[in-house]
Amino acid sequence: MAATPWDSPLVASLKSRFGDQITEFSTYVGQNFLVAQPQAAIPILEHLKIEEEFDYLVDITALHHPKREKQFDVVYILYRFPPHNERIRVKTMIGEGEKVATATTVHVAADWLEREVFDMFGIEFEGHPNLKRILLPEEWHGHPLRKDYSILQQDNQWVKENLGIESGQ
């Protein structure tokens, strides 16, 4: 089963507003998502919040595809409350070292969510007021949810210094 094109009045209005900055509108297993250029992601979130009432940012997460040229997917999940009761996803792709603008300027909730994505994937959000690690210790090296980070890997230096375990394991 492949993703099928998604069409609705919302899609039409987004198309006329953002043109070719949005490269794909699709539906998969009944869930709608759009793929946008990285620089358009935040303007789209803002437009959706102000004009279309998508005022609840459910989640921000990322996926790592090391074999792709643009290695990372950043996914924003949005919801609008009843009577619309609709959930959509905004997806954008970035390469290693590229930055996305922060969503904290639009949604306060993005603060911790972006910090977690930064912690786990090393994706930097430009303009984030406090972009530091959230789950791992601040001095930790490496970003565990990248595919090239082995499941047994850890920051041996950190473990040695802070936990006093000589072997690092």
Partner: peptide, 27 residues
């Protein structure tokens, strides 16, 4: 409580993201 799951067609998940209510509420 949300689960964002991604499959690459293999027997193992490509990615499982847990959207925890406690984490977001604590903010």
């Amino acid at each position: 409580l949300g689960y964002y799951v991604a499959s690459d067609g293999s027997t193992q998940p490509y990615r499982v993201r847990i959207r925890p209510p406690s984490f977001v509420n604590l903010q």
